[in-house]
């Protein structure tokens, strides 16, 4: 099979500074232009194309980037990622309907709430490893949903309605049916998340996570404060999930516990695994494909989970590292030496 990852990396490494800026801007322009492609082959026959761009696609991408910090970077299997999405969404729902705060003011609060719950869950759970961690996080995801289902203040199964849309910012109006505005805003959030992950990956934190993922005991014995960095991974992942949740609630105007089932955790996990754990571009590609296809092809939409399950099984057999696997290559300098 062709190695897309290495092809891409090769093209990237051959560019000078100008070429790289060009590629980045080009990619961004394409992403930003997607809402105008509704009339083309990209159109989704099942749902409104522009709203599909917002949810699931952009929302999945954002969450997949967040979950990738936890699973891909530090190798911690989190099966309850939806919890942070829910906490962000309910923070928006509650504060948006009960106070005068607007979406932009609630966004940092929602992120903080998600991060805080990341600590609450992470500190006890991250003492465990592997399967045990997976089970605890799975439970946490369900607990958050069940609390929302049973707490009167959160509207029980009715959820919260009439959540306000974001107020105009920089002269941009957010009408609930102007999907492309939401999409572009999400694009900004996604860019910010990419910036954060890339920035962290090349420095101390990235090395610490990488060493933990590969051999946690060796990491600890060579002076890496593994627990601290695992909690950080969890908390940063939670912050991205929380941001997604706030924005989701402010877009759909209505949230209920049914929006935050285990299924979401699994779908986002599928995006990460399908795209390529640990490689941010792979994860984005995975989320775009898995977010888009069900609304493009009716058959998949009807049997979404079945198809996703099949895709994962096939992928695990053919390409266990995902579409774009993490860095496996050595720098070009060494290649030259080898010739």
């Amino acid at each position: 099979m062709i190695n897309l990852r290495d092809k891409g990396a090769e093209i990237w490494e051959r560019q000078g500074r100008l070429g790289r800026v060009g590629i980045a801007l080009g990619g961004l322009a394409i992403a930003a232009a997607l809402p105008f492609m509704g009339g083309t082959i990209l159109n989704t026959p099942i749902a409104d194309y522009e709203s599909v761009l917002v949810y699931p696609i952009a929302m999945y991408v954002l969450m997949a980037i967040g979950l990738n910090i936890v699973i891909g970077k530090s190798g911690l299997l989190d099966l309850g990622y939806v919890a942070f999405f829910a906490i962000g969404a309910y923070t928006m729902g509650l504060l948006g309907t009960k106070t005068d705060l607007n979406t932009w003011e609630i966004l940092p609060i929602g992120i903080a709430m998600a991060m805080f719950s990341g600590i609450i869950l992470g500190v006890p759970a991250l003492k465990l490893r592997g399967d045990y961690l997976a089970i605890i996080t799975l439970g946490f995801g369900e607990i958050v949903r069940i609390v929302a289902l049973n707490l009167g203040a959160l509207g029980r199964s009715e959820g919260i309605i009439n959540i306000p849309t974001p107020p105009a910012i920089f002269g941009i109006e957010y009408r609930f049916d102007s999907h492309r505005i939401y999409y572009w805003t999400l694009l900004v959030l996604i860019l910010f998340a990419i910036w954060m992950v890339r920035r962290l990956s090349v420095r101390r934190a990235g090395r610490a996570w990488e060493s933990i993922r590969q051999d946690e005991d060796a990491a600890e014995l060579l002076g890496v404060p593994t627990f601290k960095y695992k909690v950080w991974a969890f908390v940063l992942g939670a912050s991205v999930g929380g941001a997604a949740g706030v924005f989701y609630a402010s877009k759909t105007l209505f949230i209920a516990p049914d929006n935050f089932t285990l299924q979401i955790s699994i779908l986002i996990l599928a995006c990460v695994v399908f795209g390529g754990m640990g490689n941010i571009w792979g994860v984005i590609l995975g989320a775009v494909i898995l977010g888009y296809l069900p609304d493009r092809i009716r058959f998949i939409s009807d049997a979404r989970l079945l198809v996703f399950g099949l895709v994962l099984v096939i992928m695990m057999n053919l390409r266990p590292d995902g579409l774009l696997p993490r860095k496996k290559r050595e720098k070009a300098i060494v290649k030259k030496d080898a010739l």
Binding site: R207, A208, E210, S211, Q214, D215, A218, A219, L222, V224, R326, K327, K328, E330, K331
Partner: peptide, 12 residues
């Protein structure tokens, strides 16, 4: 840490 370069191993 096999998937890191020699330099990264020491830097960690």
């Amino acid at each position: 840490w096999g998937d890191m370069t020699a330099l990264e191993n020491v830097m960690t």
